[in-house]
């Protein structure tokens, strides 16, 4: 059954006809030709389709487009216009996190990358709001993005799979942008498995 909805994608308003069965991901990719959101599994098991939906990181494969009439979506193609970004939507400008991905080679094939970028931006915003994670020791302690260590970043980003294994560079990039203590060269600092302790 076709129905008409309005989506704002990367600052641009679209009136689009979708089938009630059309997922938000397919509405973006197949109906609006917005292919920055990637389809890796189509079942919420990889994170490649992550966008910022109404400001929060969100999968687009497990939700129907018709349920998002009027919503605002930002993909990795549009994050440079966000606060902290370069402030315009020229294709040459990048969000600082994207610059950091490049500097740390936090990507290889690039297919999971837009999802990683959106997820990281949303994740840092969650941290800013004080959200704890599975590896947060003290649930009552306040959380600050700059205080997130490697294990915190890894845990919070685990919904974004990368088969090329660019994880180290991604964590480095995120920590650089989060403003925490800079990491040196290789991600070779000892991990803290006790933190995770079969939690």
């Amino acid at each position: 059954m076709d129905t008409s909805i309005t989506l704002t994608v990367d600052g641009r308003r679209h009136d689009v006809v979708v089938d009630t069965r059309t997922t938000l991901l397919d509405a973006l990719r197949e109906r609006l030709a917005v292919t920055s959101a990637k389809k890796g599994c189509d079942h919420g098991q990889c994170g490649s389709c992550t966008v910022l939906l109404e400001g929060r990181r969100h999968l687009t494969c497990l939700t129907l487009a018709v349920a998002h009439d009027g919503d605002e979506i930002v993909t990795a193609a549009g994050v440079s216009a966000l606060e902290g970004g370069a402030g315009d939507d020229a294709p040459t400008s990048l969000h600082p996190l994207q610059e950091a991905f490049l500097a740390h080679d936090g990507l290889q094939c690039g297919y999971c990358t837009p999802g990683q970028v959106c997820s990281a931006i949303g994740m840092l915003d969650e941290a800013k709001q004080g959200h704890p994670s599975h590896v947060t020791d003290d649930l009552e302690e306040s959380v600050d993005p700059a205080d997130l260590d490697d294990d915190e970043v890894r845990e919070r980003m685990s919904g974004n799979l990368c088969r090329c294994g660019a994880y180290g560079g991604i964590v480095d990039a995120i920590r650089e942008v989060a403003g925490g203590a800079p990491r040196e060269g290789q991600p070779d600092r000892p991990a803290q498995p006790e933190r995770e302790a079969a939690r």
């Binding site: 919420g44 994170g47 992550t50 929060r56 990181r57 969100h58 999968l59 497990l62 997820s119 949303g122 994740m123 969650e126 704890p132 994670s133 599975h134 947060t136 919070r156 980003m157 685990s158 919904g159 974004n160 939690r199």
Partner: peptide, 10 residues
């Protein structure tokens, strides 16, 4: 926090 992922929990 032990379940799913940040995106799915949202």
């Amino acid at each position: 926090l032990a379940g799913a992922s940040g995106q799915i929990r949202n």
